[in-house]
Design a protein around this nucleic acid. Structure first.
Length: 479
DNA sequence: GAACAAAT
């Protein structure tokens, strides 16, 4: 552990309501945060909505969940101003930023939002202001497995579920409509209180798992299995809700590779199927399918393979021991698998500028570009801002800045930049925009189809949701 | 190829 690091003093619990699931093409519509001390005593709270951008077409499914009426979203703070506010809240000194499933959803959304607004995408987790991140959801899974008395565990349609909405309603965590950003934040804080109170030692152990060095150290302490050729591999219990509640969210794995550059490890699940009975031709592809990757310091937790923690069924335990023997006498497959995962090259797609965060790298890793971004924020006069953008020397920064200005201060653009922004708006209507994984930007036509198909069967909707869809349909037709 | 979970 890094002992020179300053201690954290605060939590900022936060939650986003958005126009959809895609962080590159959707936008934040509502933001809520409550800042507390480390004993969960509230210090301050923030809540605001963000004006719907002209170039964002919300998903009907999102509006059903967050119950935000489009007509209401057409007023309010623009994305750029709101993003600067969120940025100042979530990059406060000595603070851990967290929420429910924030690491794989909200944090990701924030990064793209920061990026298209020329702010450092990693602001929520940086050494400069000593902030870090955590996530209550993976912690909750471990309490669900090992501390059953913590609370009532929701069962919905005969299946366990750890959705925040259900945890809240089964345990009366917070009042108000679920999926309101502030209600969800309050529920998450109450949940965190319950977890810590039930077992403080476990709470503290799990919190430290979000520290990269601690996590690495724990991985290094795992027991090994020895293969017939003398090589050895760590084994551990991989906890991830994606493995399914019928498997107790657990999988018995061995670590087959570490990619230190990408900060990732790869784990072969030894309890999915019997490898010995798969023929020579198909074995490698089956091994690949049974491999999962994990980002260091971003639990999904890995626990030592002890009887105490291994809540796998006896059938799964048997599968593991059969496969363990097979792998011990077939070491060549593991070496081949390890090599394969360390040499994966990601497809180079022609994706839209709004999705360029990972593949092209953030501006804030380049000193020159970083300075341009900072200078841009410093200028308060909007006409001067527009003039500054016109003269930016880096093409990629200029293109992003142009979209930023067009989205938030269109009237201040010069005619050249207006023309460029108009072309972008046109292309959102005429061309297919994809992100780095090939997912599409939403279009008016797709949104209309989604809305109408939802309105065809309203048996699962209440009146408010139906009204929201109807006014959304009108809005789409008027665009 | 669907299902596995959770987030909108």
């Amino acid at each position: 552990m890094d002992l020179t690091r300053k201690p954290y003093k605060y939590y900022s619990f936060y939650d986003l309501e958005t126009s959809g699931m895609n962080p590159a093409f959707d936008q934040i519509l509502q933001f809520a945060a409550i800042r507390t001390d480390l004993n969960f005593n509230e210090i301050e709270r923030h809540e605001f909505k963000i004006k719907l951008r002209e170039d964002v077409i919300p998903h009907a499914g999102a509006l059903i969940v967050n119950r935000l009426d489009v007509s209401y979203l057409l007023k309010g703070t623009n994305e750029y101003e709101a993003t600067k506010k969120m940025h100042s809240i979530l990059s406060s000194e000595d603070t851990i930023n967290l929420g429910y499933n924030t690491i794989s959803f909200d944090d990701e959304f924030m990064r793209f939002t920061y990026d298209r607004n020329l702010l450092n995408p990693y602001s929520n987790q940086n050494n400069l202001s000593n902030c870090a991140r955590m996530d209550i959801m993976p912690i909750t899974i471990l309490y669900f497995l090992y501390e059953k008395n913590t609370m009532k565990w929701p069962v919905v349609n005969n299946k366990p579920s750890l959705r925040l909405e259900y945890l809240n309603s089964f345990n009366d965590l917070a009042q108000g409509m679920a999926h309101d950003a502030l209600v969800d934040v309050e529920a998450t804080i109450e949940l965190a209180k319950l977890l810590r109170k039930e077992n403080e030692e476990m709470w503290s152990y799990l919190c430290k798992g979000f520290d990269k060095n601690t996590d690495l150290q724990r991985l290094n302490n795992l027991e090994h299995i020895e293969l017939s050729d003398g090589s050895s591999y760590s084994k551990g219990l991989f906890i991830r809700n994606k493995f399914g509640y019928k498997n107790n969210c657990i999988s018995q794995c061995i670590k087959i590779a570490e990619d230190n550059k990408l900060n990732k490890t790869f784990w072969l699940r030894l309890d999915t199927k019997i490898f010995d009975s798969i023929n020579e031709k198909r074995i490698f592809s089956e091994l690949k399918k049974s491999t999962v990757s994990r980002k260091t310091g971003v639990p999904d937790f890995i626990l030592p393979m002890s009887e105490k923690y291994n809540v796998s069924s006896s059938k799964k335990k048997e599968l593991f021991s059969i496969n363990e023997k097979w792998i011990q006498s077939n070491p060549q497959y593991l070496h081949e698998l390890s090599e394969y995962f360390l040499s994966i090259e990601y497809e180079d797609r022609d994706f839209d500028l709004d999705a360029s965060l990972y593949p092209k790298g953030a501006f804030h890793f380049d000193e020159g570009k970083k300075k341009v971004c900072n200078d841009f924020h410093e200028i308060t006069d909007l006409n001067k801002k527009a003039n500054f953008v016109e003269n930016i020397q880096y093409d990629d920064v200029k293109a992003k800045a142009t979209r930023l200005l067009g989205r938030n201060y269109y009237n201040h653009l010069s005619s050249t930049l207006k023309k460029e922004f108009d072309m972008y708006i046109q292309s959102t209507k005429e061309d297919v925009h994809i992100d780095a994984s090939g997912k599409k930007r939403n279009t008016i036509e797709d949104a209309l189809n989604e809305t109408r198909s939802k309105l065809e069967d309203i048996s699962n909707l209440d009146n408010q949701q139906v009204e929201i869809l109807k006014s959304f349909e009108k809005y789409l037709l008027s665009k």
